[in-house]
Simulated scan of single mutants.
Amino acid sequence: MTTPNPRRQLRPTDVKRLNRTWRRNTEGRLALILESVTSPFNVGSIFRTAAAFGVDTVRLAGNATPPSNPRVQKTALGTDRLVEWHEPVPVTEAVKAAKQQGFTVVAVELTADAVPLHEARLTGDVCLLVGSEDHGCSPAALEAADAVVYIPQVGRVGSFNVSVAAAIVVAETRRQEWASMDES
C-alpha cells in the first residue's frame, strides 16, 4: 500500500478546513489605516492582504483611494466586500476612531524612535498605520500613533512598496499572536 504524497496541493475543501482552523485560533482584532495611499493597485493589494489575514476594518485617511474605485477593483477582486472600510477622513480622526474602538495604533515608518518590527510587541488589538507611497506617514500621523515600527532591510533598496510593507507587518502581527498562543 502506498501512502499519499504529503506535498500534493490541497483540494479546495481541505484549504477551507485549514483556514477555518486558523480562524478559530485567531482572537486579536486587527485594523489598518491607509494614509494617502493613492495608487489603486496598492489599495487593491492591501485589501486582498487584509481579507486574507482577517483584518476587521480599514480606515482611509487623507486622499487615500477608496476600494470603490474601478481600478482598485482590478486588484482587490471583490475582497473589499469582506473587510469593513471607512471613507477618507483626516488621519488624526482615523487614529482617534481606532483608539476609541480599543486599538493600539502602530505606525510603520523610519523614525529615530522606531522599533524593529521583529522586536515590537504586536499583540492584542492592533491597528497598523501605513503612509503614502511617496512620503510615508505624515508628522500628524506619527504624533497621533501609540508606537512606531520599521521593517529592517539589508539590501540596497531603502524602502518597500506600501502594499508589500502592509503585507509584511500584517503577517508579523498575526505571527506574533499565533506564536504567543503556542507559548500558553
Results as ranks from 00 to 15, higher is better:
58 V>A: 07
141 A>M: 07
167 A>P: 08
50 A>P: 13
5 N>D: 15
113 D>S: 12
64 A>W: 06
19 N>H: 13
129 L>E: 01
55 V>I: 10
34 L>S: 05
180 S>L: 12
97 A>G: 09
166 A>H: 02
165 A>G: 11
1 M>Y: 06
67 P>L: 00
176 Q>C: 03
141 A>Q: 09
38 T>N: 01
184 S>I: 13
174 R>G: 04
113 D>N: 10
31 A>G: 14
47 F>V: 02
111 T>M: 06
68 S>C: 00
89 V>S: 08
49 T>E: 00
21 T>D: 13
63 N>S: 15
86 H>R: 15
170 V>W: 06
53 F>K: 01
147 A>Q: 15
138 S>H: 03
128 L>F: 10
8 R>V: 10
78 G>W: 05
169 V>T: 08
114 A>P: 11
158 G>F: 07
113 D>V: 03
81 R>N: 09
156 R>N: 10
113 D>G: 00
140 A>G: 02
145 A>S: 14
170 V>E: 04
162 V>Y: 01
163 S>P: 06
12 P>W: 10
12 P>Y: 12
41 F>C: 01
87 E>W: 12
179 A>H: 12
28 G>K: 03
170 V>R: 03
182 D>I: 12
47 F>T: 02
86 H>P: 01
114 A>G: 12
6 P>N: 03
57 T>R: 15
28 G>C: 05
73 Q>K: 15
5 N>C: 06
173 T>E: 07
76 A>E: 01
56 D>R: 12
155 G>R: 03
15 V>H: 00
88 P>I: 03
76 A>K: 00
157 V>C: 04
89 V>G: 00
45 S>I: 04
101 Q>C: 10
156 R>D: 08
35 E>V: 11
140 A>C: 02
92 T>N: 06
102 G>N: 05
92 T>V: 15
145 A>F: 03
6 P>A: 02
121 R>K: 14
136 G>R: 02
150 Y>D: 09
88 P>D: 04
92 T>F: 01
153 Q>V: 02
114 A>I: 12
18 L>V: 01
151 I>C: 09
41 F>G: 09
63 N>G: 11
2 T>E: 13
114 A>N: 11
9 Q>S: 13
84 E>D: 15
184 S>V: 14
150 Y>Q: 11
44 G>R: 07
10 L>H: 13
113 D>L: 03
